[in-house]
C-alpha cells in the first residue's frame, strides 16, 4: 500500500489516515479531535506563505501546522 504524508495532498483531495506518529500528549489531542487510523481526511485548503493546513475529519474542521501534518501518513488519495 502506497503511503504519503498528509502534506502531500492538494486542496480538495481526500485520503484515509494510515498512521499518526506523535508523542502521548499530542496523540491524545489528535484523537480527541477525531484523528484516528482508518478515518477519512480531507485537505480543505492551505494558508499562504506555507502556513497551516485546514483539514476536515468526519464533521470536524481542524487547522494544523505542516510540522504536525507531517506526522500523519495517508493512503488511497482521491479527489472529492
Amino acid at each position: 500500500m502506497q503511503c504519503n504524508l498528509l502534506t502531500s495532498l492538494t486542496s480538495g483531495e481526500q485520503a484515509t489516515i494510515r498512521s499518526i506518529d506523535a508523542e502521548e500528549g499530542l496523540f491524545q489531542r489528535m484523537t480527541a479531535m477525531g484523528f484516528r487510523i482508518g478515518r477519512q481526511i480531507e485537505l480543505v485548503r492551505r494558508a499562504s506563505f506555507s502556513g497551516p493546513l485546514h483539514v476536515r475529519v468526519g464533521s470536524t474542521d481542524v487547522v494544523l501546522r505542516q510540522t504536525e501534518a507531517r506526522r500523519i501518513q495517508v493512503s488511497d488519495t482521491r479527489p472529492t
Binding site: 489531542r29 474542521d61 481542524v62 487547522v63 494544523l64 501546522r65 504536525e68
Partner: peptide, 11 residues
C-alpha cells in the same frame, strides 16, 4: 518552543 499548533474551526 515547539508547541504543536492544532486548532478546531467551529462553524
Amino acid at each position: 518552543n515547539n508547541e504543536p499548533f492544532l486548532l478546531e474551526l467551529p462553524p
